[in-house]
């Protein structure tokens, strides 16, 4: 709140994340898995939608949001993911295709944010840490998938594994520069 300079955060990426969670958690009210699962889904949905609402509606934040640099066009990511989900999925049902779409979209949703960081170059600590933990979240899933692959029979899910791996790869160079800046205790700057 106090850092109303939202210059570093990409509204485009926030909107893509809101779409990812909206299309992935369609079965939240029909299938109860666990309290943790339901609570976290509500947290993911409420946090992503409130960030979008806040960045769009809040007068102070809207003015400082860097809209002339955050110009990545959603449809360049949404349409290919939708087409891919219609072609490659495990079952041709609305729920399964929507879920698969959300898996593909999450893998690339960070791109507008990474493009914005390279354009604005002034990466303040909050934004840098935010992007770092967004990437760390999915890379920790890879550790979980490896563990489950070796401990549970028939635990093979190519769609989530490949998408999660691609997503983590997209962060690779950001992780490299972020960890270097952290190690050398210098300001994080990405190459143009």
């Amino acid at each position: 709140r106090k850092n109303t300079n939202k210059r570093g955060v990409s509204l485009k990426t926030q909107e893509l994340y809101a779409l990812v969670f909206a299309t992935r958690y369609l079965d939240m009210f029909t299938d109860f898995i666990s309290l943790y699962n339901t609570v976290m889904k509500l947290i993911f949905l409420s946090s992503s939608f409130s960030i979008v609402w806040y960045m769009r509606r809040h007068k102070l934040v809207r003015r400082s949001y860097d809209k002339d640099h955050d110009t990545f066009r959603h449809q360049f990511l949404v349409l290919p993911c939708l087409i891919l989900a219609l072609l490659i999925h495990e079952q041709f049902t609305f729920k399964e295709v929507m879920w698969t779409f959300s898996i593909y979209l999450e893998a690339v949703a960070i791109l507008p944010q990474l493009v914005l960081l390279q354009r604005t170059r002034n990466i303040d600590n909050l934004t840098g840490q935010y992007v770092f933990f967004l990437g760390a979240y999915r890379s920790l899933y890879i550790l979980n998938w490896i563990y489950r692959y070796f401990t549970e029979p028939h635990y093979v899910h190519w769609i989530t594994w490949i998408s999660g791996f691609v997503q983590t790869l997209l962060y690779a160079d950001f992780f490299y520069y972020y960890l270097n800046s952290w190690k050398n205790n210098v300001k994080l700057t990405l190459p143009a």
């Binding site: 299938d31 898995i33 495990e90 399964e96 899933y141 979980n144 899910h157 769609i159 989530t160």
Partner: peptide
């Protein structure tokens, strides 16, 4: 289907 078998994942 995948959405069912990994539904315990967020």
């Amino acid at each position: 289907p995948a959405s069912e078998s990994v539904k315990d994942e967020l």
